[in-house]
Amino acid sequence: MIGPLLQLQCVTIRFGGLTAVSEVDFQIGGRELVGLIGPNGAGKTTVFNLVTGVYQPTSGAILFAGQPTANLKSNQLARLGIARTFQNIRLFASMSVFDNVRVAVQLHSPHGIRDALWRGRGFREGERAVETQVMELLEIFNLGRFRAANAKSLPYGDQRRLEIVRALATRPKLLLLDEPAAGMNTTEKVALTQLIRFIKDKFQIAVLLVEHDMQVVMGICERIAVLDYGIKIAEGSPAKVRADPRVIEAYLGDELKIQN
């Protein structure tokens, strides 16, 4: 593919008088693992919602694989290859672990309403193929043993993983993770770091990680962009960002003070 996978060009969004994100330029390459960080209220999740079609930018453009995404709804973006997880886990609460993933696999299933009613051979084979795909995905992430359990009955860390599996089941080109480490302890964070790296290598996709936790971001991201009050104040390798005085002032400074 020529050019970056995702490109934000001078993106601005205002809510009434508040400029939540201001003239942000940002891009992600085909198989890059990029982090987006910033203090609370910096506009990280807003950027996230802009990319996933929840909000439309007031000005500027977002391109995915060279195509403008203006006015596309989140389900259309999912079809293009953007998948996401949610900061506060949003699994389908009344469904089993298996069905949560099955819903996502449906995106690429050719069988619609007529096949579901006619139940011919093509439909039955299709359903079996879907089942195989779901089980393969669940097995890769060691969730196979929970297949029949209710999604919300899983331990917290497993729910987070299931949400990632569900997103992967849509066969994305770009996976957006919204604070995946939120509420995790140190051991779980280490496991999460390994998991994200594994996903990127195994599925050969780009990952955008919006994260609060420096340990996770610094450990795995190839490139980091820093937001503060809706403005991008720095971008570069983890080492470069860590050394940037503006970043230290805006974000790390507070944390360092607390640590001392």
Binding site: T52, V54, K73, S74, N75, A78, R79, A83, R84, F86, R90, L91, F92, A93, S94, M95, D99, R102, V103, A104, V105, Q106, L107, S109, H111, G112, I113, D115, A116, F123, G126, E127, V130, R166, A167, A169, T170
Partner: peptide
């Protein structure tokens, strides 16, 4: 059916369903 699980997905969480490619 795999198709029909979309109805339940819309019931459970419309935003998540949309993100999974379901057209609510």
């Amino acid at each position: 059916s795999t198709y029909g699980r979309g109805f339940i997905a819309v019931h459970d969480d419309e935003v998540a369903a949309g993100a999974m490619g379901i057209n609510p």
